[in-house]
Design a protein around this nucleic acid. Structure first.
Length: 291
DNA sequence: AAGAAGTCCTGGGCGC
DNA sequence: TGCGCCCAGGACTTCT
C-alpha cells in the first residue's frame, strides 16, 4: 500500500514538475475530500516546496498556505502540463482512460495549462488547506513517530536510530508487526514493508515486541531500512492502484519477499508462504524461516 | 491505560 | 450475463 517509498516517490515527482508553478484555480468535485480549510486561500500561491511526513505530504505555497495530503489506500496525484516528458504514458488501467473521470475529486489548475489531478477510488484519503506554519500541528503529523532513515528527511521529521528502535521495542508487549505499522510509534511503515522486513529479519510477526533479543532488534532495524530502500529503488509498490505523478506504476510488487505470496515458494527455503490475520490485516510469513 | 476490534469506502473476484 | 456477497487496508474511533 502507499507507504514511505510510495509517498516519497510521489514527493520527488511533484517536486520535479510542480516547483515554481502558480495555482490559478481549484475545482472541488467531491467536497468531503477537503477535510479542513478553504481552497480559495490557495489561489495565486506559487508552489515552493514539497515535504513528506511519514505517509503524508505538504505542498507549501509562497503565500503562507499549504496543501496537506494523505492518500491512504487509493489516492493518486497525477500531473499533466509543462515539463512532463513527451513519451510519458500514464497507465490507462490505473488512472482511467482520460482525466478527469468520476474518481477525480479535486483539480488544481496551474499556470500555462498545467493540471494536478487528485483521484481516490475508495475516498479514504484527505486534503487539508492550512497555514504552512500549522502543518506540523496536524494530529497525524504532530503525533507521528520517528521515521526510518531510508529517504531524505525532507519534512525535518525525527529519524529512527537503532538505539531508539530498541528502546521502543523493549517497552511494548504488543505483537511486533502491528507495532511496526503504528504511525504513532514509527512513521512510514505499512503492511507490505512490515511483512517483508520481518521475513528478511527471520522474525515471526506474532512475537511480542519485547521478546526480541538485542541481535534480533538489530537485524530487524537493518531489514526495515533495506526493504524501504528497495521499495524506493523500484519506485514504490503497486498493489491496488499506486502511481507516480506521471500516472505510472511502481515495480516493487515484482520483488516482494512475502507480501501477497500466499501458497508460493519461500525465497530462502523449500517451504510455502502462509497467510494469517494479525491486527485485522493480512499477514504473510514463512513459518520455517521466521521464528 | 494498553491493546484489540470495529469503522469508513469501492472495485474486483467469486459463485451461481 | 448479471446479481449478490465478501474481501482488501491506513488511521481514526470505540470497546474491553
Amino acid at each position: 500500500m502507499p507507504e514511505l517509498p510510495e509517498v516519497e516517490t510521489i514527493r520527488m515527482g511533484l517536486e520535479k514538475y510542480l516547483l515554481g508553478q502558480k495555482i490559478e484555480d481549484v475545482d472541488v468535485r467531491l467536497g468531503k475530500t477537503i477535510k479542513d480549510g478553504d481552497v480559495k486561500d490557495l489561489i495565486g500561491g506559487k508552489i515552493e516546496r514539497i515535504r513528506r511526513f511519514g505517509k503524508a505530504l505538504s505542498i507549501d505555497l509562497s503565500n503562507g498556505y499549504s496543501i496537506a495530503i494523505h492518500i491512504k489506500l487509493t489516492g493518486q496525484l497525477i500531473y499533466d502540463g509543462p515539463g512532463k516528458p513527451k513519451d510519458a504514458r500514464p497507465s490507462e488501467k490505473l488512472v482511467g482512460k482520460s482525466l478527469p473521470d468520476r474518481h477525480t475529486h479535486i483539480i488544481f489548475k496551474l499556470g500555462k495549462g498545467g493540471v494536478l489531478y487528485y483521484r481516490d477510488i475508495r475516498q479514504f484519503g484527505w486534503i487539508r488547506i492550512l497555514k504552512t506554519d500549522k502543518v506540523e500541528t496536524l494530529p497525524f503529523i504532530h503525533e507521528l513517530g520517528p521515521e526510518p532513515p531510508a529517504a531524505k528527511a525532507i519534512g525535518g521529521q525525527a529519524l529512527l536510530t537503532p538505539e531508539r528502535f530498541k528502546e521502543i521495542l523493549g517497552k511494548k508487549k504488543t505483537k511486533i508487526k502491528p507495532l511496526l505499522m503504528d504511525q504513532k510509534v514509527i512513521g512510514g511503515i505499512g503492511n507490505i514493508y512490515a511483512n517483508d522486513a520481518l521475513f528478511l529479519a527471520r522474525i515471526d510477526p506474532r512475537r511480542p515486541a519485547n521478546s526480541l533479543s538485542p541481535s534480533e532488534q538489530s537485524k530487524l532495524y537493518e531489514a526495515i531500512l533495506e526493504v524501504l530502500k528497495r521499495g524506493l529503488k523500484y519506485g514504490g509498490a503497486t498493489e491496488i492502484n499506486f502511481v507516480n505523478p506521471l500516472g505510472q506504476p511502481g515495480g516493487y510488487q515484482e520483488h516482494v519477499l512475502v507480501y501477497g505470496r500466499e501458497g508460493e515458494r519461500c525465497k530462502s527455503c523449500e517451504g510455502k508462504i502462509k497467510k494469517i490475520r494479525l491486527g485485522g490485516r493480512g499477514t504473510y510469513l514463512c513459518t520455517k524461516c521466521q521464528k
